[in-house]
Structures are given as structure tokens and as C-alpha cells.
Computed example of a mutant assay.
Amino acid sequence: RWATRQQQNENRKSVRWIEFDGKRMNVAQWAKHLGINNSTLLEALAKHPLEIALRDRGRN
């Protein structure tokens, strides 16, 4: 089966998957969902617990 470049990239071992609130997405998908940059989300995840990092982002 042929996969798109995005699908290929999502299947890498280095992709960080996050399951939260019944949804499973990688960091890039969560950032897009929240309307923020990947780097902003990664910073938040480094500084705060998962629940705080994901709930409080995108509400600014």
C-alpha cells in the first residue's frame, strides 16, 4: 500500500504520540488541533504535566 509523506513521517520511531481526553494524536497533530506551534506545545509539555499543557494551550 502506498502511503503519503505525512503518513510515512508519522510512522517513525521518533514520533511522540499523546493520548488525552479520548484522543490519540502526535505532537504536530495536537499543536494543529490547538492552533499553536509545535515548539510552543513541546515547551509546555517539558514544563507542565500533560493535562495542564494540553488544556491551557490554545485558549490565549
Results as ranks from 00 to 15, higher is better:
Arg1Thr: 07
Trp2Leu: 11
Ala3Ser: 11
Thr4Ser: 15
Arg5Trp: 04
Arg5Cys: 01
Gln6Trp: 05
Gln6Asn: 10
Gln7Thr: 07
Gln7Pro: 01
Gln8Phe: 10
Gln8Tyr: 08
Asn9Lys: 07
Asn9Pro: 02
Asn9Phe: 06
Glu10Ser: 07
Glu10Ala: 07
Glu10Cys: 03
Glu10Asn: 11
Glu10Ile: 01
Asn11Thr: 04
Asn11Ser: 08
Lys13Ile: 02
Lys13Pro: 01
Lys13Val: 04
Ser14Lys: 06
Ser14Phe: 00
Val15Gln: 11
Val15Gly: 03
Val15Met: 09
Val15Ser: 04
Trp17Cys: 05
Trp17Ala: 06
Trp17Val: 10
Trp17Tyr: 11
Ile18Cys: 06
Ile18Glu: 05
Ile18His: 06
Glu19Asn: 12
Phe20Val: 12
Phe20Ala: 14
Phe20Ser: 14
Asp21Ala: 14
Gly22Gln: 13
Gly22Val: 08
Gly22Phe: 07
Gly22Leu: 09
Lys23Arg: 14
Lys23Gln: 13
Lys23His: 11
Met25Ile: 00
Met25Cys: 04
Met25Glu: 02
Met25Thr: 00
Val27Thr: 15
Val27Tyr: 02
Val27Ala: 05
Val27Trp: 00
Ala28Tyr: 07
Gln29Trp: 02
Gln29Asn: 06
Gln29Met: 11
Gln29Val: 04
Trp30Arg: 00
Trp30Ala: 02
Trp30Pro: 02
Ala31Cys: 03
Ala31Gly: 04
Lys32Glu: 13
Lys32Tyr: 05
Lys32Val: 01
Lys32Phe: 04
His33Asp: 15
His33Val: 02
Leu34Cys: 09
Leu34Thr: 03
Gly35Thr: 10
Ile36Asn: 01
Asn37Trp: 03
Asn38Lys: 09
Asn38Glu: 03
Asn38Leu: 01
Ser39His: 11
Ser39Cys: 08
Ser39Tyr: 08
Ser39Arg: 15
Thr40Asp: 13
Thr40Cys: 09
Thr40Gln: 14
Thr40Gly: 12
Leu41Trp: 04
Leu42Phe: 12
Leu42Arg: 15
Leu42Glu: 14
Glu43Phe: 10
Glu43Gly: 09
Glu43Ile: 08
Glu43Thr: 12
Ala44Asn: 12
Leu45Phe: 12
Leu45Met: 14
Leu45Ile: 13
Ala46Tyr: 13
Lys47Cys: 13
Lys47Ser: 14
Lys47Gln: 15
His48Val: 04
His48Trp: 12
His48Ala: 09
Pro49Glu: 05
Pro49Ile: 01
Pro49Tyr: 00
Leu50Lys: 02
Leu50Asn: 02
Leu50Trp: 01
Leu50Asp: 03
Leu50Arg: 00
Glu51Thr: 03
Glu51Gly: 05
Glu51Asp: 12
Ile52Val: 14
Ile52Tyr: 05
Ile52Thr: 11
Ala53Pro: 03
Ala53Ser: 07
Leu54Gly: 02
Leu54Gln: 01
Arg55Ser: 14
Arg55Gln: 14
Asp56Lys: 15
Asp56Thr: 13
Asp56Gly: 02
Arg57Ala: 07
Arg57His: 04
Gly58Asp: 02
Arg59Asp: 08
Arg59Cys: 08
Arg59Ala: 11
Asn60Glu: 09
Asn60Cys: 01
Asn60Trp: 09
